[in-house]
């Protein structure tokens, strides 16, 4: 399936609903869909919140392709500021409430929810290729 989003946070919920519907039709387990939607939410929230400091309407493209028996290939393309999620440092989860920095958990969730994550910058676009097994 293919989905185009505007750079507005409310669009993420619509994408999640579309993926759930598509997933149910294609026999993908609910747990997998939840984990995939969480990862996409985190990545898209970052792009929409920080990717377009100059504002204006932009389009983010997402493709979801079943691969083999039990794997999904997901691609996101956006024309926001260059951002490589693989360069984000992992948070220290052992810290107590007082020491924990506010924020910094989003990309950690993405990494835990997906099986593979690849990033490249090409022609002014961020391209993320992801794999999710189930």
């Amino acid at each position: 399936m293919e989905f185009r989003l505007k750079n507005e946070l409310e669009e993420i919920r619509l994408l999640a609903e579309a993926i759930e519907l598509w997933g149910e039709e294609n026999g993908i387990p609910g747990k997998t869909l939840f984990q995939l939607n969480l990862a996409l939410d985190e990545l898209l929230t970052n792009t929409i919140t920080y990717g377009y400091p100059e504002g204006g309407e932009h389009e983010i493209m997402l493709r979801l392709i079943p691969e083999g028996e039990k794997e999904l290939l997901i691609e996101i393309r956006d024309d926001g500021l260059a951002f490589n999620p693989l360069e984000v440092k992992a948070p220290d989860l052992k810290q107590d409430i007082e020491e924990r920095p506010i924020g910094g958990l989003g990309i950690h969730l993405v990494r835990q929810m997906l099986d593979e994550l690849e990033y490249r910058r090409e022609n002014g676009q961020n391209i993320l290729l992801m794999r999710k097994k189930y």
Binding site: L38, I102, L105
Partner: peptide, 13 residues
């Protein structure tokens, strides 16, 4: 999502 976790941590602090 992490945006919700952020608010929980903020109020707990």
């Amino acid at each position: 999502s992490s945006a919700g976790l952020r608010v929980l941590l903020m109020v707990a602090k």
